[in-house]
Design a protein around this nucleic acid. Sequence first.
DNA 1: GCGAGGATCCCCGTTTCGGGGGAGGGCTGC
DNA 2: GCAGCCCTCCCCCGAAACGGGGATCCTCGC
Lengths: 190, 190
Amino acid sequence: MLEAVAEFLAVSGIEVVARARDGEEALARIAERQPAVALVDVRMPGIDGLEVARRARRAAPGTSILLYTGYGDRAVLAEAFDAGVGGFVLKEAPLDDLLRAVRTVAAGKTYVDPVLAASAIGPSTAPRLTPRERDVLRLLADGLSNEEIGKELFISAETVRGYIRKAMDKLGADTRTEAVAAALRQNLIA
Amino acid sequence: MLEAVAEFLAVSGIEVVARARDGEEALARIAERQPAVALVDVRMPGIDGLEVARRARRAAPGTSILLYTGYGDRAVLAEAFDAGVGGFVLKEAPLDDLLRAVRTVAAGKTYVDPVLAASAIGPSTAPRLTPRERDVLRLLADGLSNEEIGKELFISAETVRGYIRKAMDKLGADTRTEAVAAALRQNLIA
DNA sequence: GCGAGGATCCCCGTTTCGGGGGAGGGCTGC
DNA sequence: GCAGCCCTCCCCCGAAACGGGGATCCTCGC
């Protein structure tokens, strides 16, 4: 897969300066080569693509991150742009789209997969949760109590309650249970 | 859709004795004509296919119900066979499969869509919830309290608690919230 | 006809939740 | 450098949920 994509880009006139198999390696290569564009998979062992994007902004401010993944929804898209990525392409997209995306972000613009864009511009009813709020909801969905969640996240049970209340507020839920259900239904947590 | 299927069956040598647009009508026709096989959609306005199957067993004991729907999972499959249906076919299946299914159940045997069967014979980890348990979890996911659920279902809040506890038990959940999350994840409720 | 299982209801003491409030520290982007 | 957001923690109150028990009734299948 990695080889195939690199090969395709190379024959299409894009200079491929490096390849990496995981997040650590990707970051190292990005810092080292300072490429114009870094094509990064969201799902990777260790550091995921989003995290790579966040860190790369410091390590290589001139590099545009182009996320390349098999799946995307409103939530990850929003998070991705928060992380400062330059574009987002689905693996199912035709290879020409990938090429266009690379060139677009290389030019400093933003590229979003058209399929994804269609679903993202619709009524983005799904509220934005902070990472902490999501952590808490996830653990809540696994049946942990405030106390247990606190231990898990190294924060106090009171703080946990605070996050839950904020999440309930954002999701328009009357109970913590409804908040978890809403988050699940809207793919805000898994 | 209805017409197309009827047409196909007719030209394939199956005698189509009646058609119906909803559950009520289907039941009436089944009772009236006592067909060997009734091809029924699960999702219908008013009485759904499962309910039609249950009632048809009384109204027409000799009729085999063949459910025909666009979507299916372990849970509905299990419920379907509890309701006494003779077979289950997905709309995505090739038309030949539909034909085979009709002939199979007409012969008094059971037919299950091969795609569905594959997923159903796997580790059926999803527990069985009673209708009442599902009702309660659904309302719980909508943020209602025990009291409110009770009013909604015309039962006491204590009874509601009882169902929730049973559902928690079946789902291996420690909290009502986890029970709802588990039910959502396993498509036991929507 | 008898057992299994579903649906219904109840009690009681303990814990947690829901809903307010406030408050400080830190990073970040403009 | 300052506003804004996130993370963190704390207090109070009344209401609700929890845990674990038991109990009755009815229907359906064998």
